[in-house]
Simulated scan of single mutants.
Amino acid sequence: MSRMELYSPEGLRIDGRRWNELRRFESRINTHPNSCDGSSYVEQGNTKVICMVQGPMEPSSRSQADSAGATIEVNLSVASFSTFERKKRSKSEKRMVEMKATLERTFQQSVMCHLYPRTLISIDIHVLAQDGGLLASMANAVTLALIDAGVAMYDYVSCISVGLHDQTPLLDLNGLEEQDISTLTIGVIGKTEKLALLMLEDKMPLDHLESTLGIAIAATHRIRDLMDDEVRKHGNLRSSKLAKN
């Protein structure tokens, strides 16, 4: 697919969105209440992710115990049917290892780990479908699952991907756009401008970086509001059930 087809002269993208429009975002928490401490399901466009959190719990080996705080461990599983190419993905694939390490670093800083010394927080992520913005979708799912598990965090970590087509920033990239243009994934803490996550794949001109970041930060605040709506809705549902009992 040529670069010209990604963004038409009329200002429309492949899927009909404008440059600053987000894809459909849906989220649910407490999706697996009987199998883990916290769980979530996130859809960003056609990218679908399930996340399950166990802990804080006692680690299986002493090497995982940190007297200063909790250890965050991420396990990543990508379904062979998640893309059009049906192939088994190894956990040792370079991209999988990079994303796992990025998520562990991000949430090691975003969770109040000092409250849970000598414990392990295990995060299992299952990717059901991939269509761009995978790292952002996974990070959003982890945030919701940790909140559902009652793990103390400094604030929401809301994530989005953004790219640059010639001189036009494109927000919330789909799979076809990611193949053709440089992709920047950012995660922001709450409604601040503090970055919890930043990953740039390929190159991006430095003179466009600041404006692209500004657009992406504003979008993460919108994602944060959508996640907060789901958490509050679930909280109200739980409190109404308790009131009835």
Rank of each mutant, 00 (worst) to 15 (best):
M1D: 15
M1Q: 15
S2W: 04
S2A: 08
R3A: 08
M4K: 01
M4E: 03
L12H: 05
R13H: 13
R13W: 14
D15Q: 04
R17M: 12
R18K: 13
L22S: 09
R28Q: 11
I29Q: 04
C36G: 15
D37N: 14
S40N: 09
S40H: 11
V42K: 07
E43A: 13
Q44D: 12
Q44C: 13
V49E: 05
Q54P: 00
S60Q: 07
S61D: 10
R62W: 05
A65Y: 05
S67H: 09
G69R: 11
G69S: 09
T71S: 14
V74P: 07
V74S: 09
N75A: 02
L76Q: 02
L76I: 03
S77N: 12
S77I: 07
V78A: 05
V78Y: 04
V78F: 07
F84Q: 05
R86V: 04
K87R: 15
K88C: 13
K91P: 08
E93I: 10
K94Q: 12
E98Q: 13
A101E: 04
T102Y: 00
T102P: 01
E104H: 05
R105K: 05
F107Q: 00
Q108T: 11
Q109F: 07
Q109K: 12
S110W: 01
M112D: 13
M112F: 11
H114A: 02
H114R: 02
Y116L: 06
